[in-house]
């Protein structure tokens, strides 16, 4: 997992409430043996005009010009601005995978679905809950100014606008610690790598036939 301290990026506004995980990544893409490669199929049904299949060549598919992600001014966005109850639906971890693999590093919304929330933080996708009024204000500012960027500071727990306005957000201290230090469960266990190595050395001494 990548460390996340302070990130500043282009914002894309997705002005719909209750975006579900089926919309984030449709079910035909779950058969994969991989946990990568979901980026091109993020919001597949909205992003393309045809129906995507796992073996489709996405580069040749007709794009939906009306979908916000396809508008040139939002190309390269890393912050997704969304409405209430983002990520509702199934528990598929493919949803945060797809968002991350598309290039998103943070999602800002008034509220998120529970399972999606946990899955995202486990994978290092920072979810920021801000008051609905503030989110609304950010929507307006994003739409008004091309190239609108936000700075997300996880350490300070703030989102800062180009105008210098700052908003504080809350996050669970344990998860904050994990994301700040780039730690997933494996990372946490590897914090004890020294102890594991020491144990391993004694274990080898006692039962050498288990090694080699």
């Amino acid at each position: 997992m990548e460390k996340f301290v302070r990130k500043e990026g282009l914002v894309v506004p997705l002005d719909r409430a209750n975006v579900d995980t089926d919309a984030v990544i449709p079910k035909q893409f779950l058969k994969s043996i991989r946990r990568t490669g979901f980026g091109p199929n993020l919001f597949d049904a909205w992003r393309y005009l045809d129906r995507g299949e796992p073996d489709s060549d996405n580069s040749r598919r007709p794009l939906n010009p009306d979908f916000v992600l396809n508008q040139p001014r939002y190309k390269g966005a890393t912050v997704l601005l969304a409405r209430e109850n983002f990520g509702c639906g199934s528990s598929r971890e493919h949803a945060p995978w797809a968002l991350l693999q598309y290039g998103f590093q943070a999602v800002i919304a008034p509220s998120f679905a529970d399972i999606f929330f946990n899955n995202s933080l486990k994978n290092g996708l920072v979810l920021i809950r801000l008051d609905a009024k503030i989110v609304d204000k950010l929507f307006k500012e994003t739409e008004a100014a091309a190239g609108y960027r936000l700075a997300v500071d996880l350490e300070q727990q703030t989102v800062t606008t180009p105008g210098g306005e700052s908003f504080r957000f809350e996050i669970d201290p344990f998860r904050k610690h994990c994301i700040l230090n780039g730690l997933d469960d494996i990372g946490l266990t590897l914090d004890h790598a020294g102890e594991i190595k020491a144990f391993e050395a004694q274990h080898r001494e006692r039962q050498p036939w288990l090694f080699g």
Binding site: I33, R34, R35, I186, H192, I196, H203
Partner: peptide, 29 residues
């Protein structure tokens, strides 16, 4: 934390695990 001596691997439950290692730049211990 329990130390594991033998790890048996087959094709169905391992692909995403190996991919996870690759993504994180990790090696097999």
């Amino acid at each position: 934390l329990i130390y594991i001596d033998r790890h048996l691997v087959h094709e169905v439950t391992s692909p995403q695990a190996y991919e996870g290692l690759t993504l994180a730049g990790r090696k097999v211990w």
